[in-house]
Design a protein around this nucleic acid. Sequence first.
DNA 1: TTGAGGAATGGAACCGCTTCCATACCATAA
DNA 2: TTATGGTATGGAAGCGGTTCCATTCCTCAA
Lengths: 346, 346
Amino acid sequence: MPSQPTIRDVAKKAGVGIGTVSRVLNNSPKVTPATRQAVLEAISALGFRPNSVARALPRKSRIHNLGVITQPFTSFYPFAQRLRGVQFALRELDAEYEVVLYNVSSLPHYEERLRTIVRTGAVDGLIIIDLDLFDEQKQMLRDANLPFVGINHFQDRDWPCVGTNNYEGGYLATRHLIDLGHRDIAYLGDLFVDLYEFNTSYERYSGFQRAMREHNLSVPEEYVRLGFHDYQIAKEQAADLFALPKPPTAVFVMSDNQAFGCLAAAREAGLRVPQDVSIIGYDDLEISLHVNLTTVHQHLELSGRMALEYLLQVLKGEDAVVPSLPPLEITRRGTTGPVSPGRKKR
Amino acid sequence: MPSQPTIRDVAKKAGVGIGTVSRVLNNSPKVTPATRQAVLEAISALGFRPNSVARALPRKSRIHNLGVITQPFTSFYPFAQRLRGVQFALRELDAEYEVVLYNVSSLPHYEERLRTIVRTGAVDGLIIIDLDLFDEQKQMLRDANLPFVGINHFQDRDWPCVGTNNYEGGYLATRHLIDLGHRDIAYLGDLFVDLYEFNTSYERYSGFQRAMREHNLSVPEEYVRLGFHDYQIAKEQAADLFALPKPPTAVFVMSDNQAFGCLAAAREAGLRVPQDVSIIGYDDLEISLHVNLTTVHQHLELSGRMALEYLLQVLKGEDAVVPSLPPLEITRRGTTGPVSPGRKKR
DNA sequence: TTGAGGAATGGAACCGCTTCCATACCATAA
DNA sequence: TTATGGTATGGAAGCGGTTCCATTCCTCAA
C-alpha cells in the first residue's frame, strides 16, 4: 500500500466499521474503550493521517482561505505591516477566513503559482501585494471566479487595487526638502525596473524630477544613485555620494530600509544629520519612528485593511468598490532640517 | 436556492452535463465556443464559485498545508524572522507545502484555535511559535496524528521544541556588562508572566540575577523595571531609571524592541551611549544592526529553518530528532562599552 | 421468559468536484 | 450510401471523509 492509507484501511485492520473509525477520530464518546484502543493501534500501525481535504468536504460551513501572495519578505519590506492590517481586520470583523501565505521568488514562479492556486482552488480570494497581474492571469482568475484585489501603486488599472501614488510621494518628499531650503538634492533608490517588472523606483524618481524641475533645480547625473534594494548597497551608494567633490545637502531615499543605510554612511562620513545633510525616506515603517527618520507615510497597515474589507464584500456577493487610501503625507522627524548656512556652497 | 450553487445547478441552467461544466472550469480545449459561452453565462448568472475543498479532493497529489500558529505580530516581534526561516527552507527544499498563518490573541483563543485545526484537519503539520502546549491539547494533537514542533524556550519539554535558553542568554548579557566593568546594572523587561503564560522575562531575569550574584553585585529594587512589552512603555520605564538619584551605568533590556525605547530615553535624557550608559538588548533583530545595538543573538531565522526541517522529516515518516540550536552569543556593537571613569560613582 | 430501551456499531448515502468511459454526432473517404 | 475516425458531450464512479439510519447486542424490569 504505497499511498496514504484511508479510513477504510484502518477499519479493516482494526476489524471495525468505518463509522467507528470516524467516531474515534472525532472523539465521539460513544465508543467502547476497547474498540477505541484497537482503532488507535491500527491508526498508528498504518501511520494513518486523515486527509484534511476530504475531512473538510462534508462540512456545512466551509473553511475559507484567503491567499496573500507577495515577494519573499525581509523585516524591512513594508509587506509585514500590510499583512498585519489584513490580519487585524480579519480578527476585528470576525471573519471566518484563514490566511495562506504565498511567497514567490521570481516572475515565472509567480505565474506558475497563480496557475496552481486556480487549478487547485486552494483559496477563496486572493490579495496580491506588490505584484502586477498580466492579462492571461487576470483572465484565468476571472474565469475561475476567484475574487482578487491588489495592494500596490496602480491607480487606474483594469483590476481592483488599493493603490498608492509613488509619483506623488516622490514629489512630496522632494518638495519637503526644497521647502527647507535645499538645492543640491540627490536621489538614492532601486533600479528602475525590478525583478518583478515593478517600477516603483522610477515612479518616485519621476516625482522627484518634477519637483526639481518646477523649482528650476538641476540634478547632476552623479546625484542619482540606483542599486538593488538592500541596506548595504544603499550604504555604499550613499558613501560615494558623500565623497563627491560637491556632495548634496539632502538625499531623498526611496525606502526607509535604504535610508537606514544612507544614515549609517552619513554617520561614518562624520556628517551630522540634519545639520550637515538631510535625509528623507519613504514607507514609514514602524521602526522609522525609533530611528527618528523623516519619511513619506503611505498607510501601510491601512492598505491591508482596506484590501481585506473590499475582498470580504466581494465574497459576500456585494457590489464593492475599491476604497481609496488617504493622501500620502510627510512624517516629519529628526533627519531633515533647514539647509545649514555655514555649509551652503553657493 | 439559498446555499451556494453547485456544478449541477450550473449544468442544469446551461442545459449541459456536469462534465462539460467541469471542462469549462478547467479550461479544457475540447469544448465548443458556444457551449463554453453558455456555461460561463450560467456561472455568472448563478454567482457560482467552485468549492475549493471539493475541487481538491479528487486530486492524486494533495496540497499540503503547514500551520504556523503564534501571537499577533508586530514588526519587532522576532516572529517575522522565524517565519522567514521557515519560508526560505521550504523553498530551498522544494517542499510541496503552503504556509497557513494563525494568529491567536489570547490563551482561550489559542486553545479554541487548536481544537478547530484538529477538528477540521486544516493542516498536515503545525509549527507552534512562542506558545506552550498544554496536556489536553498535546493529547489531542497526538490522537489526531498531527505532527507538531515548537519554537520557544523549552529545552526539556515532553514535546518537540527547537528551544532557546533564556536563562543562559540573560546570564551572558549580564556577564558582558560586568566584564566591561559595570556594577550598577538595571534590568528592563516584560512582566514576568505574559498573556500566554510565558515567562520569558523571568527566565532572562533569572540569568541576570545569577550573574550579579556570582560577582557579589546587588540589584536595588528600583533597578528592576517590568512592563508590558512595548516601545513606549519601555521608554518611560527607562526614563524613570535614568532619573534615579543614582542611575545605573548599564541596562540589560530583555528585547531589542524595548532596548530601542531605552535608547530613545537615554538620548532624551542627554546621556551618551555607551559613554554614559551601556545598553544591551536581546533578540538581534535585523534592524538592530542598523541601530548599532549590542544584543544577544538567538538564531531566529535558523530556528524557523530547523523546526521546518524536523517537521518535514516527521511528515515523511522518518525518525527525527529535534536539532539543537547553536549556543547563544553576544553580538557586540556600539551601545555597550567600558564603564567611563569620570562617571563612576563608587 | 419476554419485551423495552439504550448504547455501540456497521455501512450506505452523500459532500461537490474531477475523471474517464461510453455515446452521439459530424465530416470525410470509399 | 456506408464505413471510419475524430471530437464534443453526458453522466457514473470515485476521491476520503462524516452523518445518520438501521441493526445488533445488552441490560433491566415486569
